[in-house]
Design a protein around this nucleic acid. Structure first.
Lengths: 135, 135
DNA sequence: ATAAAGCTTCCTGTTACTGGAAGGTCAAGC
DNA sequence: GCTTGACCTTCCAGTAACAGGAAGCTTTAT
């Protein structure tokens, strides 16, 4: 049995965040000692580590909630699990592609300014005169 | 002269967001007609388009605020402008690198599940038994 | 005995908006 | 003249996922 800071240390999730997870119902309410302190055992640690690894993969809390239920009850089809992971993979790939476009634009901007005088600053000029003529 | 929805349409920024920008002081308070409606001219459109292009580049509002001031007063050194763009470029590149690591992990996960039975689901197993032994 | 550390709850703040309610205004159609 | 619908206003709440900090207990160490 351990208290919240020990669990935090072992899991790599802050005590603050552990309380938050409990509050939103991602983790079950912790058992309390006589003094009101939360008490945790190995199974709490296992569950929290699972959650942490999901968060490391940027899987949203709502999806983790589903995964936790699947784990707990063993009732949902494996397909659902796979779908969550695939959705997340898709999100990540889209974000990467968008960021690459962004990167190009920024790199072009960053290299475009040689002037010391702000009134001739090529960066500001570029931002004023869009390459994308939408606006 | 135009009202807020026209400005929204021309700039590609929603009316809601325009009011929000005014509220936080990113845009100056709009001139009001007798009925209290906001009135905008070409210069408002120009400024808002500038802001929108910065946001398209994911430059944070606080940085845009600086850029707007630089534009308005022409007083800050060009270096400051360049630094904001370079900082943003740096952020974007870091994010891209992190996301590539994420992508690998997720792709490995997504391809690892062949079972129909959730109790043998390789995805859940992987999430339970970390490849990174931190936890 | 006292101080420091650890625990509790509760409230606020973060980023950049979005949604919605309640209510005033304006132009068109009957 | 009246109504209907579109457009405008302000204000309040919610989003995601926590982090920071205050106020007040308990436990542990000196």
């Amino acid at each position: 049995m351990m208290k919240i800071n020990k669990l935090a240390e072992q899991s790599g999730v802050s005590a603050k965040t552990i309380r938050y997870y409990e509050e939103i119902g991602l983790l079950p309410a912790a058992v309390r000692a006589q003094n009101g302190y939360r008490e945790y055992g190995q199974s709490s640690l296992d569950l929290l580590c699972f959650v942490r690894r999901c968060r490391d993969l940027q899987i949203p809390i709502d999806s983790i909630r589903k995964l936790v239920k699947v784990q707990a009850f063993g009732s949902a089809p494996c397909k659902e699990v796979e779908q969550i992971v695939r959705d997340q993979l898709h999100n990540v790939r889209s974000t990467i592609m968008e960021l690459h476009l962004l990167e190009e634009d920024l790199a072009r901007l960053a290299s475009s300014c040689e002037e010391q005088n702000v009134s001739k600053c090529q960066i500001l000029r570029s931002l004023q005169t869009p390459s994308i003529p939408e606006c």
